[in-house]
Every structure is written in C-alpha cells, then in structure tokens.
Amino acid sequence: MNKTPKAIALISGGLDSLLAAKIIQEQGVTVEGINFFTGFCVEGHTHAIRKKDQNKSKRNNALWVAEQLNIPLHLVDIIEEYKDIVINPKHGYGANLNPCLDCKIFMVSKALEWIECSDYEFDFIVTGEVIGQRPMSQRKETMPVIAEQSGANDRLLRPLCAKNLPETLPERMGWVDRDQLFDFSGRNRKPQMALARQFGFDDYAQPAGGCCFLTDQNYATKLADLWQARGEKTYELDDIMLLKVGRHIRPKPHFKLIVAREEGENRFLQGYKKQFTSMQPVSHGGPLTLLDGVPTDDDLKLAAQITARYSQGRDADSVTVEVIMNGQSSELHVSPLPAQDVMSEWMI
C-alpha cells in the first residue's frame, strides 16, 4: 500500500478516545473521528435547559477532542437504529438500562460501514477501549465478542490495551508499530492521565459512570416507568429528552405529570404544549406542567392541585390554574395539595 493508512476513530469525547486517536495519529496514520448520537448521550442537554447549570461548560466534548487532534469529526445521528439496541439488547443490560456490550458492537459495526464505503478509504477502526475498565463491555472476554459480532474482526485496534490482545491487521501490515501501543488494563486511570500529560492535554472530560444517561439510575427508573405505563418498550426522541427534564410524578397509573423545576425548564417544556395537555398557575407564579396520558376531570383537578403545590401560591387557599387540553383553554380554581398528600411513591 502506497497511500498513507487511514483510520476512523470512535470519539466519545472522553479521555480514552482522545488518547487512542492521538497514539495512532502520532504513528503517521491519517485519523478522522466519528461520533454517534443515540439520544441518550450526556452532553450539554440538561445544562442547556436548567438555569442553574448555565454557567457550566456547554462545550460538546467530541468536538473539543476533534479540535485538539485537528481532525475532521463526522457526527452521525443513529437515534432510530439505536432503539432496537436499547429495547432488545442481545447481551442484556448493565447495572441500569445501559446495553453497553450491544452498544459497543453496534457502534463498531456502524464505523465498519464507513470503512466499507469507498468514498472515505478508511483502512481500520480505532477505539479507546481498555480491558477491565467497564464491568460490562470492557472485559477480556468481551473484546473479541465486539470485534467478531461487529464484523470488524482484526480491523479493530484498541491502542490503549493492544499489547494485551492479539495482533490486528494494522499491526501486521506495518501501518502501526505494536511496540508503540499500550497494555493498560483495569479501572486505574493514572496511566491515561500520565499519557495525557505527556501529550500536553489538560481540561479533558472525565465523565463519571458512563457516557450516556442509560447508566444513570434515576433516568433508567423513569424510562422503565414509561415502558410500564405504555405496556410496551417503545420510545421516541421527545420521550427520552423529556425524561431529562422536570419532576416526573405519576399519581395514577394512566397519567404522569412533568413539572418544570425552574424558568429554563418552563421554557423548554413550552415547546411541547401542543403535544400534551398542559397547565400553569395564572393567579400566582408557578411551573408549567405537562400531563402525559388521558385524564378524567378528577385527574385534571388533582394535576392542577399538584401544579399549585409547586407554585408561589402553595400556601394560598385557592390557586387559579390555566389548563390547555386539545387546544382549548379553561381555568380551574383549586386548593394546592398539602405536602403530606404528595405521595412519595408518585415520584418517579
């Protein structure tokens, strides 16, 4: 092969994928990044919504990594295809609703499609996986599973732990020098941090727990509740976005309330008023609430009382709540629900 070898690196935005791509780049390989958006990725989402978080960095870490490496980054929306991974993971879930092993296999197989597309002329795939780093997907036994089931086989190179794994195509072909790859293993992050220092990287992202909301227990509980209420495991993008916002309260099995916690969430939920029954106090300052389900008149009254409970009129005798249902506006005058009557089992 006369041309410079070319690799496509999976860039999550974390340190490991940054280092993996850098190691290969240092060996004279042309590297381009690919980042998959599943809908569950932990990026600026909630930061963008909640006012209290607005001062936090809202940078997209994958873009930041690409800038550090001075490489193009392909952002790929896989929301639709990814549903099957979340809903029917062949290898099951991790501690919460995170289907990490299926997710890794799927992402590598998507990267493989880019290799097989002649427009780009990629020769192999790079990931930042480290044996023993994650209990479900990054174990010695799962490394070959990902390589095989994705179809990438020996075109998949993990530079951070390659020395603990069999030789891959890019090593055999002499595109990369195995001696300059690494043998990291386990959960200890110190070797990666030392390597980052050596390359002059600081200010990199250090996500705790995982790269997506599916590893978050509270989030997973809300998703499981959604599935249970629907009687089937399905979701749309709006559903999974809304699980990141507001207080989720299910007073009865057939309806749920999403109550904004502050101004930023109020604004975000405004965008959903056409899709849901909504309510907001008008006699006092208070949250916008979306109602997911088909409510009876009694349900509407209870929902208005709960909404009033979180308004500035929580101690008033009566709060007027505007209800918009099927495009029709009406007003309900309700007494705010006392704190002790908001059952803890309603809170999702």
Binding site: G44, H47, Q54, K58, R59, N60, W64, E67, I71
Partner: peptide
C-alpha cells in the same frame, strides 16, 4: 436555536471543518 450550546458548538464545528 433555543439551546445556548449552539453558540459554542457550531463555531467549534466550523473551525474543525
């Protein structure tokens, strides 16, 4: 857009590309 993140992300994406 309504996500303030675009003020960082779109310029970063433009720089890369």
């Amino acid at each position: 857009g309504t996500d303030p993140g675009i003020m960082n992300d779109i310029p970063a994406w433009c720089r890369i590309n």
